[in-house]
Amino acid sequence: MGSFENLNVDAISNLPADVINNILARLSLRDAVRTSVLSREWRYKWTFIPEIVFGYEFGRAFLRKHIERIIDQVLSRHQIASSILLFCLSWRNCICTKFMGTGGVPNRFPDSFSSLIVVDLSMYLDSIVEVASFLCLIRSSPKLQMLRVTLCVYRIDGAVTELLRAQETPDRYLNQLRRVEIEVYTYADPLKEFARYVLACAARLEEMVIYDPKPRFSRGSLLNLTNELNRLPRASPSADLLVIKQDELTQQC
């Protein structure tokens, strides 16, 4: 074989770190964490994966456990928490299911996600449990700086709009939030209420970008939304508000 013979201590342990990262990043979080017991050399390898994805498998295992404690444990051991920490939780299976059929969704978790910097998820605005769980999640993340959320809707539920409208503003959460990106498939009231809530609470907000991925909304409706949102009170007066089409977002980045 090639001239990498000195690597043949065993089949994989001495691969270069970025190759190992590449492999571990393609395992589920659970499989990646499990590599820590292979041998001492593997103890911390998983903690350098560039992004942590709390996926479906993770959610299925913890319906009735202290998921927030586990997530925080994982995040606090991860080495590059300050750089790119992605939280693509298939959270519908984790957090929402946890609250289904219980006494309701709390305002926030008893333990916070103290290492969570970036939240990236999609949400159906039809489900009040989902929206309440989402609010609970972001309020439980005191260091949250970046929020990227895809909002979908099949059928508008007045109760969801009411829930969002009833959120106390300003509240003391979201105060580290710098950037919010909202991908929208609806311009309905729940979106406006959600934007209103974030604008009213996030005192350090630098930019909120609402974008239309298709794009399928007219220039006029984008403008109307911009005007409507521009009239809302903001906790961070200097925050930019952009309502744009997908291609404009690419240009901007």
Binding site: A11, I12, T35, S39
Partner: peptide, 13 residues
Amino acid sequence: VEWVRREFDIQND
């Protein structure tokens, strides 16, 4: 884990 160790000949130290 046991399978991975066996397959890749990783010594558990």
